[in-house]
C-alpha cells in the first residue's frame, strides 16, 4: 500500500511539474509551484529525510513561493513578452530532455550491489560532536566548511540584491509593504501568527541538535514571520544602512568563523571543536546563525532598497 501511495505522490509531482511548465499564465505557474513545494515536502518525509522536508516546507514552498508570487504579480503586465520557440525547437528540446531523463532513470535502475553510504561513519563519530542529529553533525562538524561558505553565499546574494537598487536609494529601505492600503484581516494575521512562529522557530533551532530541525529551518520561519509583518504594513522594512541590521546579518557567520579560528587554539584546528564543549558551541552557533539567516532571507525576499532614507 505504501507503494501505491508513493506512486500516487510521484505521479502527482510529475503531473504538477509538467503543468507548471506548460501553464500559459506565469502567475498560475507560480501558484502551481507553491503547490508542488507542499507536495515535495511530503515526498521528503517518504524518503525519511525529515530535516530536508522541514527545509523544503519552509523554503521551497514558503519563502520561495512568496518571492515568486509577488514578482509574478508585479510583472503581470509584461505577460506575453516573447514567444515560445518554434515547434521544431520544442520537439528537439523535448527529445533531448527525454534522453537525459532516460539516462538518469537508467542510472537509478542500476544501483550498486551495496549502496555506498556514510551513515555508519557519521553515526560513529557523532559522539565527538555531542550532537544526536546526524544531519546537524554533517552540517556543523564534518562539513562545517561548506556551511560556513554557504552563509557567505547568502550574504553575497543579499548584497547582489541590494546592488540592484538605484544609486539614490542606497542605504534606504526595501519597498515591501510600504504602499499597501491597510487591511484589517492581514494586520490581524500579522499580529497573531508571528508570536507562534517565533516560538516555533526557537523550538526548531533548539531541537536541531538532537532532532530534525536546526538553524536553517528556524531561521526561515523567523524570516517568514518578519516578512508577514512587513507585508501587512505592521512594521516597516528597515533601511539597509541600519547598523543593527548589518550586525544581525554578519553575527552568525562571524561567530561561526570566530569559533572556527578558535579551533586553531583550543581544538584540533580550523572548525574543530573541543569535545567537551562541542555541543554547546554548536548550539551557540546555530542560535546566532538562525538569527542571521532569518534576517538575510527576509531581506533577500524583500528586494532592493527603493525608498530613500529621509534625513
Amino acid at each position: 500500500m505504501a507503494l501505491v501511495f508513493d506512486i500516487g505522490i510521484v505521479s502527482l509531482l510529475i503531473a504538477i511539474g509538467a503543468w507548471m511548465i506548460m501553464a500559459r499564465d506565469t502567475l498560475v505557474a507560480v501558484i502551481i509551484f507553491v503547490v508542488y513545494g507542499l507536495l515535495m515536502s511530503i515526498a521528503w518525509v517518504r524518503l525519511s529525510a525529515v530535516d530536508v522536508a522541514l527545509t523544503e516546507a519552509a523554503i521551497g514552498s514558503g519563502i520561495t513561493g512568496m518571492l515568486l508570487l509577488s514578482a509574478a504579480a508585479r510583472l503581470r503586465q509584461t505577460e506575453g513578452a516573447g514567444a515560445r520557440p518554434s515547434f521544431p525547437v520544442c520537439v528537439a528540446a523535448g527529445s533531448l530532455c527525454a534522453l537525459i531523463s532516460a539516462g538518469l532513470a537508467g542510472v537509478v535502475l542500476l544501483p550498486a550491489d551495496v549502496a555506498p553510504t556514510l551513515a555508519p561513519l557519521a553515526v560513529a563519530n557523532l559522539a565527538d560532536t555531542g550532537l544526536e542529529n546526524p544531519v546537524a553533525g554533517v552540517l556543523f562538524a564534518y562539513r562545517a566548511l561548506d556551511t560556513l561558505l554557504e552563509k557567505v553565499v547568502l550574504l553575497l546574494a543579499l548584497l547582489g540584491v541590494w546592488s540592484l537598487g538605484s544609486d539614490r536609494a542606497w542605504g534606504g529601505a526595501p519597498a515591501l509593504g510600504a504602499y499597501v492600503p491597510p487591511n484589517d484581516i492581514l494586520v490581524f494575521f500579522a499580529q497573531v501568527l508571528p508570536p507562534i512562529g517565533i516560538v516555533f522557530a526557537a523550538y526548531m533551532t533548539w531541537t536541531g541538535a538532537s532532532h530534525p530541525g536546526g538553524a536553517f529551518q528556524g531561521g526561515t520561519v523567523l524570516a517568514v514571520m518578519w516578512l508577514l509583518v512587513m507585508m501587512a504594513g505592521v512594521a516597516r522594512a528597515p533601511p539597509i544602512s541600519s547598523t543593527k541590521v548589518r550586525w544581525l546579518l554578519v553575527a552568525g557567520p562571524a561567530l561561526f568563523l570566530a569559533v572556527g579560528f578558535l579551533g586553531f587554539v583550543i581544538a584540533a584546528g580550523f572548525l574543530a571543536y573541543p569535545v567537551d564543549y562541542a555541543k554547546a558551541l554548536i548550539v551557540l552557533i546555530e542560535i546566532a546563525l538562525a538569527l542571521s539567516i532569518g534576517v538575510t532571507l527576509a531581506l533577500l525576499a524583500a528586494g532592493p532598497p527603493e525608498r530613500t532614507l529621509q534625513p
Binding site: 520557440p85 525547437v89 528537439a92 528540446a93 533531448l96 530532455c97 534522453l99 537525459i100 539516462g103
Partner: peptide, 16 residues
C-alpha cells in the same frame, strides 16, 4: 537562449 540552453542538453548527451 533556447538554442544555447538546448546546446547544453545536446552536449550532455554527446559527451556521455
Amino acid at each position: 537562449w533556447p538554442i544555447a540552453s538546448m546546446c547544453v542538453a545536446l552536449l550532455v548527451v554527446l559527451t556521455a
